[in-house]
Amino acid sequence: MHDIIVGILLVSGGFFACVAGLGILRFPDVLMRMHASTKASTLGVGLILTAVAIYFGTLEMIARSAATIIFLLLTAPVAAHLLGKAAYRTGAVLWQGMSKDELKDYAETEQESQ
């Protein structure tokens, strides 16, 4: 029973990581690729880490996996934010189909200030 849960978690984690890779490849512009990269990968890796925690079962291992997950959850969004801002600022090629661009007016004002 214990193995089956670990196995399922592992495979689903792997699956999400693979989807993240696919996402990066298929999405048209930078910002959308970031969606895939940060969200899917964090989920994938998170699942694998929980699988590890369950597999070993010792307190130390659970704490270590939990710490790794927290670190990931902490760093991934900040990284994505910075990257997005930098990409947008430096005139990344944006997808035509984009419906709303909230950052446009704000970006102009900030550009002048620099």
């Binding site: 792997g14 990968s41 597999y55």
Partner: peptide, 23 residues
């Protein structure tokens, strides 16, 4: 930026990789 996103994903997958290796 696209390339940096790819690198970011590779880093995340390596963490996953080490975890799976542990199992």
């Amino acid at each position: 930026p696209d390339r940096v996103v790819a690198l970011d994903l590779i880093a995340a997958i390596i963490i996953g990789f080490t975890a799976t290796l542990a199992v």
